[in-house]
Design a protein around this nucleic acid. Structure first.
Lengths: 156, 156
DNA sequence: TATAAGACCTAGTAATACAGTAGGATATTG
DNA sequence: CAATATCCTACTGTATTACTAGGTCTTATA
């Protein structure tokens, strides 16, 4: 099991998408600026998200990405899965052949843990996150900062 | 956050220790044979477990390791922590300075997840595992197989 | 008292994945 | 045509994992 910057980036980017959905397609450049994630790395993550139909792309100027489904239908567990960060805590992938074709001493423990985490992350949709007070506050901070940066950039 | 073979090995070895506690100190060679874990790797893991006082060592022939506390007092979360596999899912270590000194968009989500996992793994002691039916069954299988291997080895 | 069983310690290594960079091709708007 | 943006592939430094190899120190026992 692994949960690193990769999975966190993917969820963060998807949440950013959900937050700015009403303004039409969101470009990766915008997400990159707001969330401080390398643009090229984002591109690689979004390739996987697109293959998993979690986002739709719009090419050309003014283009970007849209959510592939309603925010309420997209759940954190799916996003992490999509970028290949397995939530599974077992070594056997849940198959139960961890020791010579049979289960190892701690097989059920890791199965239970996997189930626990999966249930938790499956219970949280993008819509849930968008509705959270702390998320709204951070999003506002980021939007304000980006607006400020744009003004400064145009002044130069 | 990471949960790999390393943490699983540590928990498995500790559980093996708890299961064979009544027969006096348990040698790493025995654990290595039963759980199919490289002896030298086990030594490295047990160095950390000893530093965290989760086990006590007995040197010399007939020596090995004993639990550092009652099985009911040792909890899975401690073991994983001891071998440096952080259960924390945040990038900031829970400090909340993930984006320019302030929290990032998904900070609370990862905090909640970390808490969730920690609670789960803190609620399971070695005594709990020893009492589980599936654990007892696997332990018996491993003990029988090891006994058989010893007979075969002496026959050669 | 010599031997062997075991803990204890350090260094090194192949494989893997992460996080990021670089450079370009393709599509679309104006 | 030019600019914007997605799309695609290849490469790279770094860190960690899981493991091997060698050795030292301690102690029960024959």
């Amino acid at each position: 099991m692994r949960l690193t910057t990769k999975g966190r980036y993917a969820v963060t980017a998807m949440l950013d998408l959900a937050l700015h959905a009403k303004q039409g397609p969101v470009s990766l450049a915008d997400i990159s600026a707001r969330q401080e994630i390398s643009l090229s790395y984002l591109e690689q993550l979004f390739a996987k998200l697109r293959r998993n139909e979690l986002v739709q792309s719009v090419r050309g100027p003014g283009g970007g990405y849209r959510l592939g489904a309603e925010a309420a239908q997209i759940v954190v567990a799916q996003i992490i899965d999509a970028v290949n960060e397995s939530i599974d805590a077992t070594s056997c992938g849940g198959e139960g052949n961890c020791q010579d074709g049979q289960i190892c001493l701690t097989h059920h423990l890791w199965c239970d843990l996997s189930k626990q985490i999966h249930q938790f992350l499956s219970g949280i949709s993008l819509a849930d996150l968008v509705a959270r007070q702390d998320v709204v506050a951070v999003a506002k901070r980021q939007d304000d900062l980006q607006a400020l940066d744009l003004i400064e950039a145009s002044a130069v």
